[in-house]
Amino acid sequence: MFRSYFSETWALTLGFGAKWRELRLEMRNDAIPFQHRQPMETRSSTGEMIEFREVTCTLGEEKVLREFSVSVSKGETLVLLGRSGSGKTTALKLINRLLLPTYGEVNVNGRKTEAWDKIALRRSIGWVIQESGLFPHYSVEANIAIVPRLERWPRDRVETRLTELMQIVGLPPDLRKRYPHQLSGGQRQRVGVARALAADPEILLMDEPFGALDAITRADIQKEFLRLQSNLRKTIVLVTHEVREALLLGTRIALLEKGSLLGLWTKEEFAHSTDPKIRQYLESDRAQLPI
């Protein structure tokens, strides 16, 4: 133990941090009990874009996700519906490897997230966050162009893409030089979406993307989101706690509670279902309303 600590500190000081972490990761996977290990060949045969296979994720002592299995096929919008603490955001972070599963595996494009280079994986996935998570010190255009610039696109290509994106998400061009604090909530959210779309990723992850908006702006943006999605056909995983949003935006809905998947329904099934689990969630959702 001492030896590993010691050598780690040295490796880190000498700047081998990244390499070493990869190594540690492999070592940690070796430490997983045998019955939970997956065979080395991990390409899934189903051709799904994203696939959770009996994923359990532990943060500290708490199991935030238990034996979660779900797959998302190309071009669909899967909504993860649940209250706060249901593990839905955790599920999202497992896809772009901000978290790693404790047991089980998450496949993206037929490849285990552990096997992906995490930087490449994340750059190939768009990520839209609550409150949009824009960089306060970057102008609108700099915010949108982050991933293309990190990928070292030539300047004119970035420029063309910027113009295109601003148009796609419905931002007037005169906002380009503004800073996030000079924008309205709705505009910020559009910038967030444009930023996620910048490098044209196949997959889009959205964490309560419209949560911070007032009802009217939200309705507008949701409508535009649908229009956008009918053109772009991205594979989307969207997290929300709102039944209305789930029904409006999702093609399928996964209901989560305390880290477990309660069920998976298509939008139509969900809307007309008499399943007590759904009824119960609808009741509790209604109970939150002041009316």
Binding site: L98, L121, R123, G133, F135, L150
Partner: peptide, 25 residues
């Protein structure tokens, strides 16, 4: 932390996080 997580989620390396986010902010 939300801004940092956004940066990581977009695929910044540690050095890029430092240069583009942490040092300027």
């Amino acid at each position: 932390p939300a801004v940092k997580e956004a940066a990581l989620g977009m695929g910044m390396t540690d050095g890029e996080l430092l240069r583009h986010v942490e040092l300027p902010l």
